[in-house]
């Protein structure tokens, strides 16, 4: 009796905790509402299974607790029951997998009109690079990194000259404009993590990884690092803003290009002081 009751309390307690919990994901700021829906769907399906199975266990413990003289049944197999359980479980799993893979397909299919934005991680700060007027990012390589060229932009690549470099400052994004976030690392693994975006991906030195999204909600959001990158991992924070189109235009007008950076000594100096 006591044990069965304890199991029931655990089940009910867990459900109540779940329903009353103020600890829930932050409101989303991108188009990945599907991910939230999938989490909810999964909560529903698994939650029902959890409750049903544990209540059944509690019932068994209550009903078939040891009594002098009770004889347990002898029932080694029941093929019909086992087949049914297999089929039902497979259906439940398929109900989770199918929509999941469907959304995953969207996640890995970057729309044509997405703007490319580069995020560069290094121990323990974030920098960014936006394509300039030509709409294209120039090539870059960690081997080219130096005090004058903190992102390793290839100086011989004409596409790179008008790239906008943001070092030690916040990133702004325009609401409604899909972006492909190209992720690069200077040193170790990092992970560009903004909980409100839902999407995230590791940055790996030696390769360019990416994810895409469409910002949908104007606001200011915290950037964290989600992949262990040394002792500063917990403190590798930044800010990203989603602006209205007008604000974004103003902001982008104030930024400096790679070419300006490499010719203008003053800017380089203040830039170094910033760092």
């Amino acid at each position: 009796m006591g044990v069965a009751l304890a199991l029931v309390i655990i089940v009910i307690g867990s459900v109540i905790f779940h329903l009353l919990s103020p600890w829930w994901w932050t409101p989303i700021a991108t188009n990945w509402g599907f991910m939230d829906d999938m989490i909810s769907l999964t909560f529903w399906i698994t939650g029902v299974v959890y409750v049903v199975i544990l209540l059944f266990v509690a019932y068994c413990v209550y009903k078939f607790q040891y009594r002098e003289g009770r004889v347990a049944a002898y029932e080694p197999e029941n093929n019909k029951l086992e087949t049914w359980l297999t089929v039902l479980t497979s259906l439940g799993v398929a109900a989770l997998l199918a929509p999941g893979l469907f959304v995953w397909f969207q996640f890995v299919t970057v729309p044509e009109d997405a703007t490319e934005i580069e995020v560069v991680g290094q121990q323990w700060s974030w920098s960014y690079r936006l394509p300039g007027a030509d709409g294209k990012l120039g090539t870059a390589d960690n081997r080219l990194i130096s005090d004058d060229n903190i992102l390793g932009i290839n100086p011989d690549d004409p596409y790179g000259q008008d790239d906008i470099v943001i070092d030690g400052d916040d990133l702004h994004l325009a609401v409604g404009q899909p972006v492909k976030m190209l992720l690069r690392s200077v040193d170790v693994l990092h992970d560009y993590y903004v909980p409100e975006f839902r999407a995230k991906m590791d940055m790996v030195p030696g390769m360019i990884t990416y994810f895409w999204m469409e910002p949908t909600r104007v606001g200011t959001y915290d950037v964290l690092c989600a992949e262990l990158c040394g002792i500063g991992h917990g403190y590798m924070s930044g800010i990203v803003l989603i602006d209205t189109a007008e604000d974004y235009a103003v902001w982008i007008g104030e930024q400096i290009t790679f070419a300006e950076m490499s010719t203008n000594k003053d800017i380089k100096l203040t830039d170094l002081v910033d760092r």
Binding site: M35, I39, G100, L101, W104, A199, A226
Partner: peptide, 9 residues
Amino acid sequence: NVIVDIPLS
């Protein structure tokens, strides 16, 4: 389920 893992991983 890969898509659910993205926000939670």
